[in-house]
Design a protein around this nucleic acid. Structure first.
Length: 462
DNA sequence: TTGGGG
């Protein structure tokens, strides 16, 4: 029986714990963030979580937890939840003090942060023993949390529009999907309703046949079923952990939850945005009624208010007048709308960029018989697709059969090729009509293709 | 033991 008078009963305030180096202490605190669970260099799994209390409400201390398996690590449901830690050892690391959870003698229990009537922990470690007296501390901490838990940092740039290459930043997003891309390496698909900005394209057009610009970063591509579960507006950002090590337990993240990531590196891969989880990246789950989460959802809903609101945010207010379609009354859709449209055969209008052509040389757009046959790689903020531009549709697009000089010029404008800017191109947004169709009646979805039609290029002044 | 960081 624990004796209420003994030291074993006491919880130390975090400030007091930081002066108890190398001592075993009991702590109770509010979880503000967690590191991604990892395999340790030894035989264990580990994760670091940060906790605060009334005595240290801003920085708090980090707790390093070790366990034999991932599911024995504390799996914090939401930022603001309460963790009770027994027999953790305070360790000095540089000038910082951490608490170390040792699986041989430490114990933890996790409680919901906001349900004031619930004193049953939702996760406990094997050595945890519940005590009647703990409830008072949990209740007090909950009361304190209402007024003192730091707000979600809304001043950081969480909008995808402001991400920059090579810069680390924070991101608030919803986890849509997680999949294993190569053995032990997981990819996260996240979204917050905003568009990532368009990137320069560096692929070599003359190598488009042998080494085509990819349509997505994951291999194999996601199934149609998974794609159909994604929102069709706003960028679905791919996040990987390949920079730190492939053993990160990314698959433990909860699909469907809003998360705040800290210290994510953003990079361009194949002209597509990729978020990279670093060793020092942290995350915390946000509740669905979190202020910032609700703000993202409000902003997202606004994107559907008008007829043209599915246009990429970065082409605002209107794409440059390079093309003209014969269906200007038709509302715009995104490429994800097209990919996930429930019918194989349909017609659409969208605003896209031409990021590659096959053939890569404008002088080869027509086959030996003189008929146009091109494949364009199109992208918007939501996806990339291949679209054909054949025969009569191409004749309409190019305004007949321009000579080589004119076609080369046209190609450069269409792909945003700037001779002065080395190999990179920055394709402009164009307005175009697309149709979806099939080439094999026995496998209509499997052989679904896209083609440009009823669109005319008018971007050359002469 | 491990980790905490780049």
């Amino acid at each position: 029986m624990p004796n209420p008078e003994s030291d074993d009963y006491k919880f130390l305030r975090i400030v007091d714990a930081t002066t108890s180096i190398n001592q075993k202490v009991n702590l109770i605190g509010v979880v503000t963030e967690a590191g991604i669970p990892k395999q340790s260099k030894g035989t264990d799994c580990c994760c670091t979580i940060r906790i605060v209390d009334e005595s240290n409400p801003s920085s708090g201390i980090s707790v390093n937890v070790f366990a034999e398996t991932f599911d024995k690590l504390p799996n914090v449901e939401s930022t603001g939840d309460i963790i009770q830690l027994s027999h953790v050892v305070m360790k000095l690391h540089g000038s910082e003090v951490n608490a170390v959870f040792n699986k041989r003698f430490s114990a933890f229990a996790l409680y919901e942060g906001s349900d004031f009537s619930n004193f049953v922990p939702y996760q406990v470690s094997s050595k945890f023993h519940a005590r009647e007296q703990d409830n008072k501390f949990i209740a007090d901490l909950r009361k304190w949390t209402i007024t003192h838990l730091p707000e979600t940092e809304s001043n950081g740039f969480f909008q995808l529009n402001s991400i920059k290459q090579g810069i680390r930043s924070n991101l608030i997003c919803k986890v849509l999907h997680i999949c294993e891309v190569t053995q032990g390496e997981w990819m996260l698909f996240v979204w917050n309703g905003t568009d990532a900005p368009p990137l320069d394209i560096h692929s070599k057009l003359e190598e488009e046949l042998k080494n085509p610009l990819c349509l997505q970063l994951e291999e194999p591509p996601l199934s149609r079923d998974v794609l159909c579960s994604f929102p069709t507006v706003g960028t679905v950002l791919r996040l990987t952990a390949d920079r730190c090590n492939a053993r990160l337990a990314l698959q433990l993240l909860k699909v469907g939850r809003w998360v705040q990531f800290r210290n994510i590196q953003f990079e361009a891969r194949e002209g597509l945005w990729c978020g990279i989880l670093m060793h020092s990246s942290k995350f915390s789950y946000l509740s669905d009624d979190n202020k910032v989460v609700l703000e993202f959802q409000r902003e997202y809903k606004k994107r559907f208010k008008g007829k043209w609101t599915r246009m990429p945010l970065s082409s605002f207010p209107w794409p440059p007048n390079l093309t003209k379609t014969e269906h200007e009354h038709v509302p715009l859709v995104t490429l994800m709308d097209i990919i996930t449209y429930p019918k194989v055969l349909y017609k659409y209008r969208c605003v896209v960029r031409v990021v590659a052509t096959l053939p890569g040389e404008a002088t080869n757009f027509r086959g030996p018989s003189g008929i146009y046959r091109l494949r364009l790689t199109l992208e918007d903020a939501t996806a990339r697709i291949h679209a054909c531009l054949y025969d009569k549709d191409a004749e309409k697009f190019f305004g007949g059969y321009p000579d080589d000089d004119k076609m080369i010029k046209l190609h450069k404008v269409l792909l945003g090729i700037d001779e002065n800017n080395g190999k990179a191109r920055n394709p402009p947004w164009i307005d175009c009509c697309l149709k979806s169709y099939y080439v094999d009646k026995s496998d209509m979805w499997g052989s679904r293709r896209y083609g440009i039609f009823d669109t005319k290029f008018i971007g050359l002044s002469d």
